[in-house]
Amino acid sequence: MNLFDISIPHMSRSAGQVLVWLDRAQAHADARKFDVSVLLTARLAPDQWHFTRQVQQIVATPLRLASLLRGQAPPDIAEIEPSVAAIRAAVQSTRERLAPLRSSEFADAAERVIPLPFMPGKGLAAPDFVQQFALPNFYFHAVTAYSILRHHGVEVGKPDFIAPLSFRDL
Rank of each mutant, 00 (worst) to 15 (best):
V18G: 08
Q17Y: 02
L69C: 08
L124N: 04
T144G: 02
E79N: 12
R53T: 11
Y146N: 01
E81W: 09
R32Q: 15
V55A: 08
A99V: 02
V59T: 15
G121M: 05
V36S: 08
E96K: 12
N2H: 01
R24I: 01
P82M: 08
V154D: 00
F140R: 10
R95E: 10
F167P: 11
R13Q: 13
G71W: 01
Q132E: 10
I114T: 06
V154Q: 00
N2D: 11
A90P: 12
L124M: 15
R70F: 07
S166R: 09
D76N: 04
R13C: 07
P120M: 10
R95N: 15
A89N: 14
M119W: 08
M11H: 10
A109Q: 01
D160Q: 05
P9C: 06
A85M: 11
I148L: 01
A163K: 06
N137Y: 12
Y139R: 04
K122R: 14
P82T: 05
V18N: 06
E105G: 07
L68S: 07
P115K: 13
Y139T: 10
Q54R: 05
M11Q: 10
D128W: 04
H28W: 02
F167T: 14
V154W: 00
F129C: 08
P159V: 12
K122Q: 14
A31Y: 04
T52C: 09
I148Y: 00
E96N: 11
R24D: 04
I114E: 03
F34S: 10
P127S: 11
L44N: 08
S12D: 13
F51A: 04
V55C: 14
E79R: 07
F161Y: 13
D30W: 03
A15F: 01
I87C: 08
T61I: 15
I6G: 14
P100R: 03
L170I: 05
P164W: 11
P117S: 15
L124K: 05
P115A: 15
V113E: 15
F51P: 05
S14L: 13
D5N: 13
L170W: 06
A110G: 13
F138S: 12
D30M: 02
L3F: 06
A86R: 11
M11G: 07
Y146M: 02
S67G: 09
A27F: 02
R150D: 00
K122M: 14
G123L: 04
A86H: 11
G153D: 00
G157A: 13
Q131Y: 12
A29K: 09
R97N: 07
N2T: 06
F133K: 08
R70D: 07
I8F: 05
E96S: 14
V20Y: 03
Q72T: 00
L116Q: 10
L69S: 08
D160G: 04
S103C: 09
S7V: 06
L68C: 05
